[in-house]
């Protein structure tokens, strides 16, 4: 009898000890999360002030009414601005933008993959030097670099001079979609190289050795091990190139000329020239949604590279 009582007493004390531990743990977790929130507070503030609020303003304006004088009335809420996006002019611009962004992405991928592979398989020292080379363009202004391309691709620029010297005649690249693509590929290539490099560099090389040991040739080894394992980098790089290419403004403005209006320029025209803020806002919002959805799909599919 006595021993059972003792056992019971012991059990309750064990239970209460466990209870206490659980409570203590919960408290610790609460404290940790509070500390975490405090650290993230500036970032949250920044996001709300410069992203969430402006975005809300854009959304609100997209449902507003354009007055005949070119002003915007925050009344008579309607979907006119969204209906306007279905018109042929806008649709053409949309398709052209998507097409150019896709081409830019694919070209970046083709150029960046071999280079990133090369980069990832070098020694630490060579790697660091090459990475600096990748970053160098960022040291000068994006606008300046685009104007440099204007000089390079112009009708009497170096490219044209070379082609006419070897008898191919003058090249007329400037103010064509090709010039825009060249400019975009040039501008966004580092955004493809860096995630690709990160993904390839992270691959456990022993897996490649294992595949070689299992009778894979060098090529098969690449196709079945390196390529699939670098997919997160491919996806991340593609998003990082596709998204800004789709909304690009500076490069098409400087290199594209009047015939190659893209979405970015069209939005600007709506706000500044046509003074149709609701349409500009609705287009911005749609564009942003597309980008957001693309990115979400990426994270949902398990990519965690960036």
């Amino acid at each position: 009898m006595v021993s059972t009582q003792a056992a019971q007493a012991e059990q309750t004390s064990v239970e209460s000890a466990e209870q206490a531990t659980v409570e203590f743990e919960a408290k610790a977790i609460r404290q940790a999360s509070r500390r975490g929130f405090l650290m993230a507070l500036p970032a949250y503030g920044y996001l709300v002030l410069f992203f969430a609020i402006p975005l809300m303003i854009v959304v609100v304006y997209s449902f507003a009414t354009r007055t005949s004088s070119g002003g915007t009335a925050l009344s008579g809420w309607n979907l006119d601005a969204y209906r306007k996006l279905g018109e042929p002019i806008v649709r053409d611009i949309l398709f052209r933008s998507i097409w150019i962004a896709l081409l830019t992405t694919v070209l970046c991928l083709i150029i960046a993959y071999p280079f990133s592979y090369y980069l990832a398989t070098r020694s630490e020292r060579v790697r660091n030097v090459l990475l600096v080379f990748v970053m160098i363009p960022f040291w000068s202004n994006f606008l300046v670099r685009n104007y440099a391309w204007r000089v390079l691709l112009g009708n009497d620029g170096p490219v044209s001079q070379v082609t006419s010297a070897i008898g191919l005649g003058e090249t007329r690249i400037l103010f064509t979609p090709l010039a825009v693509i060249i400019g975009l590929v040039y501008g966004f290539l580092p955004f493809m190289i860096l995630p690709l490099y990160a993904a390839i560099e992270r691959i456990d090389w022993r897996l490649v050795e294992a595949s070689r040991d299992l009778y894979a040739s060098g090529f098969e080894s690449f196709r079945r091990v390196v390529l699939p394992l670098s997919m997160p980098g491919v996806v991340a790089g593609s998003i990082l190139v596709f998204v800004p290419s789709l909304g690009a403004y500076v490069t098409p403005e400087i290199l594209g000329g009047a015939k190659t209006t893209l979405l970015g320029s069209y939005v600007v025209v709506q706000f500044l020239t046509a003074r149709n803020w609701p349409v500009g806002a609705s287009l911005s919002f749609v564009l942003m949604s597309v980008m957001l959805v693309t990115t979400l799909i990426y994270f949902r599919s398990g990519g965690r590279t960036l």
Partner: peptide, 27 residues
């Protein structure tokens, strides 16, 4: 290595993470 009649069981196993067990074995 692919031209030698030998196979290796690696120290860290080196199983392919993007394939299931059967695909690993069949590689």
């Amino acid at each position: 290595p692919n031209k030698r009649p030998v196979n290796t069981v690696f120290q860290n196993y080196a199983l392919f993470p993007h394939m299931n067990v059967l695909e690993n074995v069949g590689f």
